[in-house]
Nucleic acid binder design. Structure first.
Length: 344
DNA sequence: AAATCGGGGCG
DNA sequence: CGCCCAGATTT
C-alpha cells in the first residue's frame, strides 16, 4: 500500500505532531486524562459530534467519576444521564463494561483485549489502547477516512462507510507514528475535525498539504466517495394531556427494540383519538437515515376509550418527571411547550 | 454485506 | 433537505 515514498513518512508525522501540539482543542479528557476518561469520551463520541457530547461528558463525569461509581449505579440512572444523546445501547454497554472491568483481576490493555468488552469495536479498542496505554494501534474513523482519501487522492467509490474503513486500515497502519500512537491518532482525527473538513477544506492551513495529492484542488471536497443511504421520512402524531398537575405519558415496553423503558407523549391511536386540525407544536428530529416530523396535539378530554386499560400509559405528576428517562428530545419539548402553555 | 440504532447540527 | 459525525451490533 504505497501512500508516499518512505522518506516522506517521518516528515509528515513530524509536521502533523507539531501542528497538533499547538492546534489541539483543550477537551476535558485531554486536560484530565485517564483510562476511564478515554473510554467514556470515545464511546460518547461514536457517531456524535464533539460539541454535542461535551455537556453530557461533563455531567457524566460528575455523577460517575470512575468505573466503580458507574458499575454501582442503577441502569435507570445511567440512561437518565444519556437521555437525548441517542444510540442508547452505548449507555447500556458502557454500564455493562464497567461492571465487567471492576470484576477483572487483570485489566485489559491491548486493543485486542479491549475489543472483547461490550460496546467496544475496532475503532474504540484502537483508540483506548493507543491513547491510554501507548500501544501502536491505528484508528480509522470518519475523519481518518476523509484525511487519507484526500492525502492519497483515492477516487474509487465505496459502497458503504464500513467498506471505506476497511480499505484505509492498511495505509493508516503504515502511517501510524509507533513512537507516539495516541497523539498521532488524535492528530489525524483533529486534522479531519478542524482543517480537512467535509466541505471547504482549509488546505492553506494544513500542516501536511505538501504530501497531499488533493491539497488546494477543488476535487478534494468530493473525497471520499461513499454511497449514502437515502433518508426516510416519517410522521408521528402525539397527544399532550394535562390533568391535575400530571401529564399523560406512554412508557415504551422494556423489551422494545428501540428506546426500551423510556417515556414519550402517547400517540393518538393508543387513546382512540384522531389527530385534530391544528397542532399545538411541530417538532422535527432525525436519527441515522430517518427524518421524523412530530405533531403534538393538545387534548383536554374526554377520551373515547378508557386509556387506563392500555399498557404503558400513566399519568405522571410533573414533579416526578425529573427522575424518568424521556425519549429523545421530549424533555426539551416539554420545557418549551409547558412553559408556553403556562403563559397562555 | 446490509440494516438498525429512531440524535443533532450545519450549510 | 442533504450530509456526516472519535461506530457497534444484529440480521
Amino acid at each position: 500500500m504505497e501512500i508516499l515514498p518512505q522518506s516522506a513518512f517521518a516528515l509528515l508525522r513530524k509536521q502533523l505532531s507539531q501542528w497538533y501540539r499547538c492546534a489541539r482543542r483543550p477537551l476535558p479528557w485531554r486536560l484530565v486524562p485517564g483510562v476511564y476518561a478515554t473510554v467514556v469520551s470515545e464511546i460518547m463520541a461514536q457517531q456524535t459530534r464533539i460539541a454535542t457530547m461535551l455537556p453530557y461528558y461533563e455531567n457524566w463525569m460528575r455523577r460517575f467519576p470512575d468505573f466503580e461509581a458507574l458499575a454501582a449505579a442503577d441502569e435507570a440512572e445511567v440512561l437518565r444521564h444519556w437521555e437525548g444523546l441517542g444510540y442508547y445501547s452505548r449507555a447500556r454497554n458502557l454500564h455493562r463494561l464497567s461492571k465487567a472491568y471492576v470484576a477483572l483481576a487483570e485489566k485489559p490493555r491491548t486493543s485486542q483485549e479491549w475489543e472483547s468488552l461490550p460496546g467496544i469495536g475496532p475503532y474504540t479498542a484502537a483508540a483506548i489502547a493507543s491513547i491510554a496505554f501507548g500501544h501502536p494501534s491505528a484508528v480509522v474513523d470518519g475523519n481518518v477516512v476523509r484525511v487519507l482519501a484526500r492525502l492519497m487522492g483515492e477516487e474509487r467509490e465505496f459502497a458503504s462507510n464500513g467498506e471505506a474503513v476497511k480499505f484505509f486500515r492498511p495505509p493508516a497502519d503504515e502511517l501510524l507514528d509507533r513512537e507516539n500512537p495516541g497523539a498521532h491518532n488524535q492528530a489525524m482525527m483533529e486534522l479531519g475535525a478542524l482543517l480537512c473538513l467535509p466541505k471547504k477544506p482549509r488546505c492553506a492551513e494544513c500542516p501536511v498539504a505538501a504530501f497531499c495529492k488533493s491539497a488546494g484542488k477543488p476535487e478534494a471536497e468530493a473525497l471520499p466517495r461513499i454511497v449514502r443511504r437515502v433518508v426516510e421520512k416519517m410522521e408521528v402524531n402525539r397527544v399532550l394531556h394535562l390533568e391535575n398537575g400530571a401529564i399523560l405519558l406512554h412508557r415504551i415496553a422494556a423489551d422494545a427494540k428501540r428506546l426500551a423503558g423510556q417515556y414519550e407523549l402517547p400517540e393518538p391511536k393508543l387513546l382512540g383519538l384522531q389527530p385534530r386540525e391544528k397542532p399545538l407544536a411541530v417538532r422535527t428530529r432525525s436519527i441515522t437515515h430517518h427524518r421524523i416530523v412530530e405533531r403534538i396535539y393538545r387534548h383536554d378530554g374526554p377520551f373515547p376509550v378508557k386509556w387506563t386499560k392500555q399498557p404503558g400509559l400513566a399519568l405522571v405528576p410533573l414533579e416526578k418527571l425529573e427522575s424518568l428517562t424521556l425519549s429523545g428530545p421530549h424533555r426539551r419539548w416539554l420545557g418549551e411547550i409547558l412553559g408556553r402553555t403556562r403563559q397562555n
